[in-house]
Structure formats: C-alpha cells, structure tokens
C-alpha cells in the first residue's frame, strides 16, 4: 500500500531528506543556518530557470532556448547600460527582446507545429548567434561602477535572506498563482494533459502556447539579471554549456512528467533542493568537480529509473512518436 503512494516526487523528497539528515550528521557545519541559506542561494538561479522549464513541460513542451535567452538578453542589457542608456530603458529593450524570442518560439510550436524540442533547440542556436553577431560581440560583459539599487538584486539581503533566494521564491509564488488560479494556467494543464481534447473543448490552444513561451522567456530574463548582478557580469558562453540539461533534470527529477499535464511548482522546489543539498554536501566533502558530476548524474538516473519501475509504461497505451 505504501508503494502505491510512492510517486517520483515523494521518492525525491525522501532522498533529499535522507541526504539532508546524513549530511547534517556527518558533515561539520552543514546544518549551520548560514550554510543552508547559501545552499538555497547557490541553486536559486537553477530554480528560477526550473520554474520556467516547468511551465513548458507541464504544457507538454520543452524550452531548450532558455539558456541562450538568459545570458544574451542580460548581457545585452548590461551592454546598453554600459553605453549610457538609463536602466529602465535598457530593461525595456531586453524585455522586448525576450518577448520576441518567446513569440517566435510559441508561433513555431503552436502554428507551424514544429516539435518543441527542435523549435527551441534551433532557436537557442539562433538567439546565441544573434547575440554574438550583433548584440553582445564580446562574451564577457561586466558591470561597470554603478551603485544603483538594480545591482543589489543579485547581492543584497532582505532580513538576512539573500535576494536571489527571495527572487526565486517570488518567481515560484507567481508561477504557482498563475498555474493554480488563472484561467490560462489551468488551460496549460489541459493542453499538457491532452492537446487534442483541449482543442476540441474550445480552449485557445495555440495562443496559450505562445503565451506560455513568452512567460518562459521573461523568467529567463529574470534569471539572467539575477546572475549578472550576483556575479557583477555575465558570460554568454553559458549558452554553449550543458546547464540546460541540469535545468530539465531539476524539473523532471521533481516529478513533472515529460508527457505534460502533471506536477506543479512544488515539484520544481523539491528537485532544486535535492540538487542543492547534493552539490553543497559534495563540495563540503571536497569531492572533485568531475566526481560530483558523476555522482549527481547517476543519482538522477537512479531517480528516473525508480520512477519508471513504479509507474511503468505499457506497450498498449504508449503513444506513438512519444520520445
């Protein structure tokens, strides 16, 4: 009976708790509140991006361009500011850019009916290309001077809590409210669950998909701003890294099925926390980066294997073309 209730989210939560207890006992200083705060802070960017990715995956999509949109938009904004543009105007420009990216993504997926994986994969390459060719010719953009409140987004503290954590919480809360209480949010669940049925019932499937990718792009910009202000600069090479895979894993690990319609923001938080605990613990143990990577990915694989074992797919009900 217990096994019945063990879905992936609970498995991951359980793993996270076990690891947490284990690290608390074995590692000096792990349980220290300062360390716990920095644990969350260190994965807050991943978490913010995870919230965006969750929106896509719940709607039976995926957004691989998020890791190009994030650095390119933020770096362009910094470039504009460094060239003397007022912050609010630069922010408006960056916002316009990410909305445009979101619209193109959404139109490609909803209207041209290109599978989301490919539309966003290609858009990721295109956005990086546009960025490098025109918007951000030099990879690394640094924040120059400036004591504005704006730069405190990544570095400040409110009531002792680092601002990135607060931004993460804010984004998660807004996304939760959106998915839970707004009509488009409910529609996204419907579309993810069964796009054809959603369409037949009269949901505006295509506009909703476009909206969904616009929101994701905006979340990417938020993550970019937090990253840039936290590190007082940003490097567009992140787009070439494999970080986007980490983001997907955070989401899927938390228990949001790739087939859409299931899960919520809670799952993202659970997945993010597990990754955070793992990374923090392993860094304290002074494991080398490569070993950390191996351990992390093997644990991820184990999590999805367990999920598959508990919720197996059936040949008779598997959907064709469902990769």
């Amino acid at each position: 009976m217990v096994v019945d209730k063990l879905n992936q989210e609970r498995i991951v939560l359980l793993t996270a708790i076990v690891l947490f207890v284990f690290f608390s006992i074995t590692l000096n200083g792990f349980i220290d509140p300062g360390n716990l705060l920095s644990l969350v802070q260190n994965v807050s960017i991943l978490g913010i991006l995870g919230v965006g990715m969750a929106l896509a995956i719940i709607g039976r999509g995926i957004d691989l361009s998020i890791l190009s949109t994030m650095p390119v938009s933020a770096a362009w904004m910094l470039n504009l500011i460094n060239d003397g543009m007022p912050i609010w105007l630069a922010l408006a420009c960056a916002l316009a850019f990410v909305v445009l990216v979101g619209i193109v993504n959404g139109v490609l997926i909803a209207y041209v009916e290109v599978p989301a994986i490919f539309a966003t994969l290609a858009m990721g390459i295109v956005v990086y290309g546009i960025g490098k060719a025109w918007l951000v010719p030099i990879d690394s953009v640094y924040i120059r001077g400036g004591e504005s409140w704006f730069y405190a987004i990544g570095t400040g503290r409110i009531l002792g809590v680092p601002t990135p954590v607060i931004v993460f919480a804010g984004v998660a809360l807004l996304a939760w409210l959106f998915l839970r209480y707004l009509k488009p949010g409910r529609f996204i669940y419907g579309i993810g669950d069964n796009p054809l049925a959603a369409r037949i019932t009269g949901m505006p499937v295509r506009p909703m998909i476009v909206l969904q990718y616009i929101l994701i792009s905006i979340i990417a910009l938020v993550a970019g701003i937090v990253t840039a202000t936290a590190l007082s600069g940003i490097n567009t090479r992140v787009a070439l890294s494999t970080m986007v895979y980490d983001v997907i894993l955070v989401v899927v690990l938390g228990g949001i099925g790739l087939s859409g319609g299931k899960g919520g923001i809670r799952n993202v938080i659970v997945g993010t926390l597990l990754i955070g605990i793992l990374l923090n613990g392993m860094t304290i143990m002074n494991l080398s980066y490569t070993v950390q990577n191996i351990l992390k990915s093997v644990i991820l694989l184990a999590a999805i294997v367990v999920d598959t074992l508990l919720n197996p797919r059936d040949e008779q009900t598997a959907q064709h073309g469902d990769i």
Partner: peptide
C-alpha cells in the same frame, strides 16, 4: 590546501563553490 575545486570556467559555479568553502 583545504579545498581544491574545479568551477569549469563558469563564474556562477565558482561563486557557489567558493561560498560553500568559505562557510566551511
């Protein structure tokens, strides 16, 4: 040498690694 960590040329990783090291 109390810690030797790679950050993969990524400032974001360097930041999280360093903050953990400093806590420890």
């Amino acid at each position: 040498v109390v810690a030797k960590q790679s950050a993969d040329f990524d400032p974001a990783k360097a930041k999280s690694v360093t903050s953990t090291i400093l806590k420890q």
